[in-house]
Amino acid sequence: DYYKILGIPSGANEDEIKKAYRKMALKYHPDKNKEPNAEEKFKEIAEAYDVLSDPKKRGLYD
């Protein structure tokens, strides 16, 4: 669930989505986080943001 990945409610607005994305992206960026699964988690976060930040894609997802 993209909302769960970003840690936001399904009714989140654009600003909340952007803030959550930035926070999670910094936390899991492969250059900052050396955990083995950090890169995979970072890709999931980027995919979630891509879908939820685009009103058309978000509409299809919801």
Rank of each mutant, 00 (worst) to 15 (best):
P55C: 09
D1R: 01
E35Q: 13
G11H: 08
D50A: 08
R22W: 13
E35N: 15
D15H: 05
Y3C: 06
Y61C: 14
D50E: 04
D50S: 08
D62F: 04
F42H: 14
M24Y: 10
D1I: 02
S53R: 04
G59A: 10
Y3W: 03
Y3N: 03
I17E: 00
D31S: 11
Y21H: 07
E44M: 10
A25H: 04
D50G: 06
P30W: 06
E39G: 12
N33I: 11
L60S: 12
F42P: 04
D62T: 09
S10K: 06
E14M: 10
A20K: 03
D62C: 13
K43C: 11
K57E: 06
A12N: 01
D31V: 11
Y21R: 04
K56E: 12
H29L: 11
R22I: 10
K41E: 13
L6C: 00
A46C: 11
H29S: 14
I5W: 05
P36E: 13
A20G: 07
I8V: 11
Y2L: 09
Y49M: 12
G59N: 12
H29N: 04
A38Q: 11
D31E: 15
I45R: 01
K23Y: 08
D50Q: 04
R22Y: 10
A12S: 07
A25W: 12
K57D: 04
K23R: 09
P55N: 15
S10P: 06
G7M: 07
A25Y: 10
Y28K: 05
N33R: 13
L26P: 14
I45C: 08
A12V: 06
N37L: 12
H29V: 06
L26A: 13
S53K: 04
E44Q: 12
Y21W: 07
L60Q: 15
I45L: 09
N33L: 11
N13T: 09
E14T: 08
A46Y: 00
L26I: 15
Y28C: 07
L6F: 04
A20L: 00
Y49P: 01
Y3E: 03
K27C: 13
A20I: 01
D31P: 11
M24K: 13
K41F: 08
A38G: 14
P55E: 08
K18T: 14
D31M: 10
K27W: 11
G7A: 06
K19E: 13
G59D: 05
K41M: 09
K4V: 07
K18N: 07
I45K: 02
K32N: 01
D15L: 04
K32A: 04
A38R: 11
I5M: 08
Y49G: 06
I8Y: 00
K34S: 13
K32W: 01
S10F: 15
K41W: 06
Y2C: 03
L6K: 00
E35H: 04
F42E: 06
E47R: 10
S10W: 06
N33Q: 11
Y28S: 04
V51R: 04
V51D: 03
P30R: 12
E39C: 15
P55D: 08
E35P: 14
E44V: 09
F42D: 04
K43F: 14
Y61H: 05
Y61F: 11
L52F: 01
Y49I: 03
K43Q: 09
G59T: 09
E47D: 00
A38D: 14
K56P: 02
I17K: 01
R22H: 14
K57M: 02
K18I: 05
D15R: 03
F42W: 15
I8H: 00
A12F: 00
K4Y: 09
K27M: 12
D1Y: 01
D31F: 10
K56Q: 08
H29G: 13
P9A: 08
K18H: 04
Y3Q: 03
Y61D: 07
E16C: 06
E35Y: 04
E44T: 05
N13A: 05
E39D: 15
A38C: 14
I5Q: 06
L52D: 00
E14A: 08
V51E: 05
E35F: 06
K41A: 09
E16W: 04
D54G: 04
K18S: 14
D62A: 05
E39T: 09
D1P: 04
D50H: 08
K4A: 02
G11F: 04
N13S: 09
G59V: 08
K4Q: 10
K41D: 13
K43W: 11
I17D: 00
P9M: 08
E40M: 14
E44A: 10
N33S: 15
P30E: 08
S10T: 03
G11P: 03
I45M: 06
K27S: 11
E35R: 10
E40H: 14
N33C: 11
S10I: 07
K56V: 05
K34N: 15
D62M: 10
V51F: 04
D15V: 04
L52R: 00
E40K: 14
K56D: 04
N37W: 05
R22N: 12
A48S: 05
E44S: 09
P55H: 05
Y21K: 02
A46G: 04
K41C: 07
E35A: 05
A20R: 03
